[in-house]
Design a protein around this nucleic acid. Structure first.
Lengths: 254, 254
DNA sequence: CGCTGCATTGAAATATCTCAATCAATGTGG
DNA sequence: CCACATTGATTGAGATATTTCAATGCAGCG
């Protein structure tokens, strides 16, 4: 079974050819599992492997002086968690599992081979790390320009949109169960205020709160409006309709 | 004269060999100049070139519904402004000059050649785009976990530290003259509140405000404390003292 | 049953914003 | 050289958003 079948899915410009998918798959030396809230890599660690998510959600965070977390990114199935560790060699932030997580471990030596073998695949891996950067920029926007409700709305929209790419959104239920504390840590607000903001969203019929972080989305359009959400930064195929796809297929292998 | 002599300077792991520097230099097809506040690239534009800063400061920003700006990054001499445009092909944010800016224009076709010619140089360019991502993460932290004063302090620390790498900091004077409005746009606060925060910093003897955005730093240690500033995310040589530098020299050309 | 972890609520404290006004420096046209 | 407009910095006062602290509720679990 193909572990990496979701990699860059929905990102036409960089979707992989058959051969490339095989090579990528072969780069996986083993898979590992994390328990809920288990740490994957601690900030400052030198890394020799990167991890691709087969299943589950990984939180990326920086901690302040008092140990309070600021989430700086989320990763879902189809994402590399820390591919940037390949050129960087050291992680400037920590990563941890949300719930149960299944990861494919890829040694940097294997990535080096991939990159040498296929310029197109190299470009795709590079692109994948830049997608993270684009999301970071949008997170800066979210924190700098939106109020608490808008920030939560924006984050939910991003989670939905990203799961649409990989076919993991059913149209109503948010496919990730974050605690209100996690929303607070992602949005730069206190858990208490996150709670009140959720309450507002619920009272206005925009979403419904189930237990255990389950969220049902009742009015996606309104969520997008509140979060000033423009999904184009995720570089999905729809946004690239005008593109020429000059390097679309995997045939570029050298 | 070498335009690109500052590229990745101070980042030992990825400093370039002599040959690579020549190749990079040869990739420059022309240089262009921007006037103060002139836009370089508008969000959404398809790009065929990337720009390396020879002199001046470039602001990167996203705009909200009302046209209010959120700065998402700054670039200084030695930085590529939008190298990520090479794999991405489209910019998800806008870029504009702060004051007078002198840029080297590098066509993506030339970058493609560079990348094919030297795996090491390719890695260095990739690394350079990831440095932006690391800074983005720190900006998220700044906005999510610090109050107005801390945010300003953190930003000033980053500007200082980055200019130290390229030898453009004299030990006292902030080498970039941002308006208080720019600080506000970077820190997610109003200009009025930025003003009051600066006033506090000044009253406590931490810095001195000259005209035209000039800032003299009187107590760098206190600024770092206020901003909870840990410079390691900039990946300077000091932080990598323990590294093996297995790919340090340009000899990796294929 | 009595924990424990998370959600929820209330009330008061604090940070930040908004609006409106003033000030200082600079540039422009006459 | 003056009158005037422009731009950015500064200040005050009141409004709003968010935090803090403390308490309660609620469900799962040994």
């Amino acid at each position: 079974m193909l572990h990496t079948k979701l990699f860059l899915q929905g990102r036409l410009r960089h979707e992989l050819g058959t051969r490339e998918k095989v090579w990528l798959e072969e780069a996986i030396k083993r898979t590992i599992r994390l328990k809920p809230r288990e740490t994957l890599v601690e900030r400052g660690t030198r890394v020799e492997h990167s991890y691709y998510i087969i299943e589950g959600t990984v939180l990326r965070h920086l901690d302040d002086r008092n140990g309070e977390r600021q989430l700086v990114g989320l990763n879902f199935p189809g994402d590399f968690v820390d591919l940037h560790g390949f050129p960087m060699k050291r992680l400037d932030h920590s990563t941890a599992a949300l719930g149960h997580v299944h990861l494919a471990e890829v040694p940097h030596s294997a990535i080096a081979e991939l990159v040498d073998r296929s310029g197109h695949l190299a470009r795709a891996l590079w692109f994948s790390t830049l997608l993270d950067a684009a999301m970071h920029r949008e997170w800066i926007f979210r924190l700098g320009r939106l109020n608490a409700e808008g920030r939560i709305a924006h984050l939910i929209c991003e989670i939905v949109e990203r799961h649409k790419f990989v076919g993991l959104y059913d149209g109503h239920n948010l496919p990730v169960q974050l605690l209100q504390r996690d929303y607070a840590e992602a949005c730069g607000i206190t858990p208490v205020h996150a709670n009140r903001s959720f309450r507002n969203l619920k009272d206005r019929g925009i979403l419904e709160l189930g237990g255990d972080g389950r969220i049902e989305i009742l009015n996606e359009a309104e969520l997008k409006r509140l979060g000033e959400f423009r999904g184009d930064y995720l570089y999905g195929e729809g946004d690239l309709a005008l593109d020429s796809f000059e390097d679309r297929d995997g045939g570029a292998a050298r």
